[in-house]
Design a protein around this nucleic acid. Structure first.
Lengths: 155, 155
DNA sequence: TATTGTTATACTCTATAACTATA
DNA sequence: TATAGTTATAGAGTATAACAATA
């Protein structure tokens, strides 16, 4: 229930009684992420994948085959989680584990043709979702938001 | 390989090869929240509470006694989670469940003196943590970030 | 019959460590 | 001895529904 009163900057409503508190930014980040994430979940469901799969597909699409150690380094997942994610991708026919000449410990996780196709379509499906989640923002504000977040996390 | 060569101002690093993708904002929100949350966890640990307790303490401090249905409405938790959180607060001596004259189903969750004190000190401890998490931002940028997030979530 | 709060259950995530096969 | 990947297990968090007391 959003009783949106007149104030525009740093609103302090009964629902959000501590808009200026040290916790406010954390609460805002969590709500914004939750909104974005659930919209993305809904967009990805028709493809049978979840966000964690998409992140890996994105890395593979961008970089070509990567071993699981690389995927650990490029995501927020540990190696046990990556195993499960790659298991899922293999079961869905989106990626395969290929042998790496020269080091038989490594598995080159490689997108299949179907994997490339699904990623491309999921990518396209994600765009309007992202646009909807940021609909209240102008394109300039959207870019400014991303810039500030990157500044904050030092990226 | 990165086909997004025409990207404008968004940084495109090897670590973040799809800075302009529809998922980029979600990833940024998650990372920013994670950084903020873990710093806050560390700050709250000395008080024996966690973020979910602090949120409830904040509501009680701002509004006075609330029943558990109200706490459900004012947080992201369902009633079962609120039961456990209030259990914790009672066990820690920070709040108590008081009878409500006129409706014996309700429990007025009420801050104790100790609860008020712990909230005040946790609030003070949180301020520098929040400042550190947003250290790369100027005060104006910090305010701009919160404004954009509020715009995005419609608050 | 509906609502508040409690309890029980099950399911998802995650974190960890033990284990294998290779190096 | 160290590394890549796998498996097993336990813990936290959450969502759900059944339940008791009260309205």
């Amino acid at each position: 229930m959003t009783t949106d009163t007149a104030s525009s900057s740093a609103a302090e409503t009964p629902e959000n009684p501590r808009a200026g508190s040290p916790f406010a930014l954390g609460l805002l980040l969590r709500q914004a992420h939750e909104r974005f994430a659930s919209a993305m979940d809904a967009a990805l469901a028709p493809f049978g994948i979840e966000r964690r799969h998409l992140v890996v597909l994105m890395r593979l699409n961008a970089s070509g085959p990567l071993n699981q150690r690389d995927l650990v380094a490029q995501t927020d997942h540990d190696k046990a989680s990556i195993v499960r994610i790659v298991d899922d991708l293999e079961r869905l026919g989106l990626a395969s584990r290929e042998l790496v000449p020269g080091d038989r410990r490594l598995r080159a996780v490689t997108l299949t043709d179907h994997g490339h196709d699904v990623f491309a379509r999921a990518y396209e499906a994600a765009a309007p979702v992202s646009a909807a989640a940021t609909a209240p923002l102008s394109p300039e504000q959207n870019e400014q938001l991303q810039l500030l977040l990157r500044l904050m996390i030092g990226a």
